[in-house]
């Protein structure tokens, strides 16, 4: 079954919409779904034109397509465990929070906290991801714990903060403090990064581009496949691995 949600024009287009019920599972059956626009609770149909095609069987066979300006729509795919969500444009914050399974594809850009505290499944973002992609919540000791996030463009600051498991692969550049407080998992950045892997405890961070402002507290261990291997963060008794291209600026 395909469910297409097309944004309707809104009187106040900048109001955030919280829509954690946009999760394939919820489109089985015909219960009323509600979202929040600012401090008002609205029916899903007040915000989106909803079109359903095909037969319902199980959530893994459901594809939800978001169309129109969805850049203010938050928490899409939260707690999702199967099925597919395709965002044709940009998506708001917290897309794929706590995701456990299934697949989210974002054809535009994703705002902050993409795949926060994700446990499984995969997210593919064709554009750029905002800050805190694959990170945790304030005060929490674990970020993303499993699954995979792939970003074709650039990522913002604090990419994979507290990364604990799973893999994040950014094809473009990352902002500052990528992989800060990492405690597991694998973070791959094809482009450049600023102050990466700060205070890391465990896990692997691989950077193919330039590193800006490398920290003074990583210990050079050796070379592997033409890349330099560091251990650290020594400031933190860390046992993480930072693998970088040989030239450091």
């Amino acid at each position: 079954m395909q469910v297409t949600l097309t944004m309707k024009p809104r009187a106040k287009p900048f109001l955030p919409i919280e829509a954690e019920m946009i999760n394939p599972m919820n489109f089985i059956g015909s219960q009323n779904l509600f979202v929040w626009e600012g401090n008002k609770k609205r029916r899903l149909e007040d915000i989106f034109t909803v079109r359903k095609e095909g037969n319902v069987n199980s959530p893994e066979n459901i594809v939800v397509v978001l169309r129109g300006d969805t850049s203010r729509v938050k928490r899409v795919g939260e707690y999702m465990s199967s099925g597919t969500i395709i965002v044709e444009g940009d998506i708001g914050m917290h897309c794929g929070n706590f995701m456990r399974g299934g697949f989210i594809e974002i054809q535009g850009n994703a705002d902050g906290w993409l795949g926060r505290e994700m446990r499984g499944g995969s997210i593919l973002c064709h554009g750029n991801a905002g800050d805190y992609c694959g990170s945790g919540y304030r005060g929490e000791k674990r970020g993303m714990r499993g699954g995979k996030i792939e970003v074709a463009g650039n990522a913002g600051d604090y990419l994979g903060e507290y990364l604990t498991g799973g893999e994040i692969h950014v094809h473009g550049n990352a902002g500052m403090f990528a992989g800060a407080e990492m405690r597991g998992g694998c973070l791959i950045i094809d482009g450049d990064a600023r102050i990466p892997a700060a205070n890391m405890a465990k896990g692997t961070c691989i950077i193919h581009g330039e590193i800006h402002e490398m920290l003074p507290t990583f210990e050079k261990i050796g070379e592997k496949d033409g890349m330099l291997v560091y251990h650290g963060d020594v400031a933190n008794k860390g046992k993480g691995e930072l693998i970088v291209k040989s030239k450091i600026t």
Binding site: I195, A198, N199, E213, L215, P216, T217, F218, E219, G232, D233, V234, A235, N236, K237
Partner: peptide, 26 residues
């Protein structure tokens, strides 16, 4: 400017007895 984090990391490593990894200038 913007070097606070690096200096603090270096100080932590030194207090922990790992001044060996710290470069000559931070």
């Amino acid at each position: 400017q913007g070097g606070d984090y690096h200096v603090l990391s270096a100080l932590r490593a030194i207090v922990r007895g790992r001044e060996d990894v710290v470069p000559d200038m931070v």
